[in-house]
Write a protein that binds this DNA or RNA. Sequence first.
DNA 1: AGTTAGCACTCGACCTGATTGAGTGCTAAC
DNA 2: GTTAGCACTCAATCAGGTCGAGTGCTAACT
Lengths: 354, 354
Amino acid sequence: MKLNDRKIRILEAIITDYIATAEPIGSRTIARKYNLGISPATIRNEMSDLEELGFIEQPHTSAGRVPSQKGYRLYVDNLMQSRKLSQEEADFLKNAISFNVNRIEYMMEQTAKALAMLTSYTTVVTEPKSRKVKVKHIQLIPIDESEIAAVIVLDNKAIKNNIIRVRNIPDTDELNKISSGINGILKNCSAEDIDSGAITELMRSFTQYKDMVTKVLKAVISALHQEEDVHVYTSGVKNLLGFPEFSDVTKVKNIFQTFEEKDMLITLLGEGDDTSADKIQIIIGGENNMEELRDCSIVRANYRFGNNSVGKIGIIGPTRMNYSQTVAVLNEIVKKLDSVIGAFVDGEDGGYDE
Amino acid sequence: MKLNDRKIRILEAIITDYIATAEPIGSRTIARKYNLGISPATIRNEMSDLEELGFIEQPHTSAGRVPSQKGYRLYVDNLMQSRKLSQEEADFLKNAISFNVNRIEYMMEQTAKALAMLTSYTTVVTEPKSRKVKVKHIQLIPIDESEIAAVIVLDNKAIKNNIIRVRNIPDTDELNKISSGINGILKNCSAEDIDSGAITELMRSFTQYKDMVTKVLKAVISALHQEEDVHVYTSGVKNLLGFPEFSDVTKVKNIFQTFEEKDMLITLLGEGDDTSADKIQIIIGGENNMEELRDCSIVRANYRFGNNSVGKIGIIGPTRMNYSQTVAVLNEIVKKLDSVIGAFVDGEDGGYDE
DNA sequence: AGTTAGCACTCGACCTGATTGAGTGCTAAC
DNA sequence: GTTAGCACTCAATCAGGTCGAGTGCTAACT
């Protein structure tokens, strides 16, 4: 049996209609709504074939047809026409997000929120993270009689701070000397580079400040680990409640469970991922391996932030989600984020929003 | 009509039962389950009185009775016996949260999560925030050929960083001189203290680094404002879906809407608040002024963090929530947080968790 | 006077059966 | 190859009936 042009047009009609209405669609409705120039009976025959080919399925006899996972896949890969963002949509994105590289968390939070509002699906965004973070600079700053701050600048532009309590604080000059000494040893070290060799060297260099240096070391290691700990921003979880396929509370509960678990979200965004690919990926229904998200599709993309730093964005909706709009929105936001970084690297400092 | 002892015992039975089952309860059931030594008929008479007094109500004729808002209020204020946390519950809290003052965000996140798991309600936690934040110390650190980091230590122990791009970077000694110069002027300033006087003084002192100083100033102002921007951690939103009173999806949607809006949560935790009071507050049903949360109760408390810094914790459940357990849990966690801060102030540095 | 047994009544929950309508597959004619 | 016609299926909807948990009222009992 061949998937001829007419079959494809019928399949497309079914998918379009189902995305819009969430109702199984029958032959007569297709004949009425879409002018294909053929009678319901003919459509019935074609639909019967489409079902046998696995592109549509029937919830039960005497109901209309519904696209299958395979059907959506065909649609997404071959049928769907890429669409550009409307002016309103583009404007919305531009206004909803204050692109400010100095406040990345805030920017990511806004991004998640804006995408959720625009698509009315659920959005998950991870902060840009480097694969391996290294120390770029360490500076000790006196705060008061008993506390100093260890400021640790990392090579991905992140800065971490730890307050350290010490019995008696060296004066500023001495502290600067210690800072540059520590710098000499720890500069360009990643978490695993800090081995016993580096540690004993440090201890030997600063015997009289052993206690303080130990604490600084701990802070550095903690900072490096912290930085590998990915932040995840979620928004629009409640949006899913609006779709009829999720009117069953127990079903939704499992989905929400997943959304509250950071690890799940990260695997969701990363699973089977090719980081080098800049293409948008679409994962339909059961193609993700999470039982709870069987009725959801995910449209996801990576965005780049500097050289080796990559963040992820995912939009999660029902399998019958509006793929073309979602892809368009995602394309736009990735382009936007890239350009912000570009401007930053080229000399702008991102500005402040007040 | 007087609210005699027997009426009170019946009311208590109704509330206890309803909290456990979420089902309206009738006279016969009370007679069977609670040995009050009176017949259903007598109970019926008393219930009729209780209804007239406004402590219970009937969803419809021929259904059992359900506690009213006034009923819960009486229960919470007079009837409920305070209960201590069980050993298991206390252990759970202790193990679920790594009390580490150097990673406050992480600690708050864990606190929210632990409370949500323990109570099976929704938890909202705000970071401890001071009313007015002041600059304690500013330090400029060179990062590379074109960037310096402005590290801004605030008097509430928070540290903020901004990367600043400048055309040509002064050497370290010069930078230190500039740092201490800026410090001299901006130290102990809050956001509103930075007026035109301070700004012109700064500009006069550093005419040759005007550009850089302007950017530092912007960073300081931004940091002070950022610090006044409260972080809110929410957990266990999905928990509400498990309760029969929230099996209607559209109802839940409105509630979730509220939970996604930070401002709403903050007013929810702060409304009619007496910050000086350390007592736990209970807000029943419509006593909060948010239409969407009419069917929810909130148990909330403040915790102190240092001198003038206060955070809030709220636990949100159905009106028939388990008030005595919730209060016990909240008491425990507030005590715990206080003691962590105490230890910190007394000389511990909070440790690192690896 | 307070308590209780008895009884009629109410009303949601649940089951059953009939009807409707959207949909199908098959067959025969165009 | 296309289509009209027809028998068939099945979820959804509605009406009617029964059940049971609950009530309020009255009269009798302590």
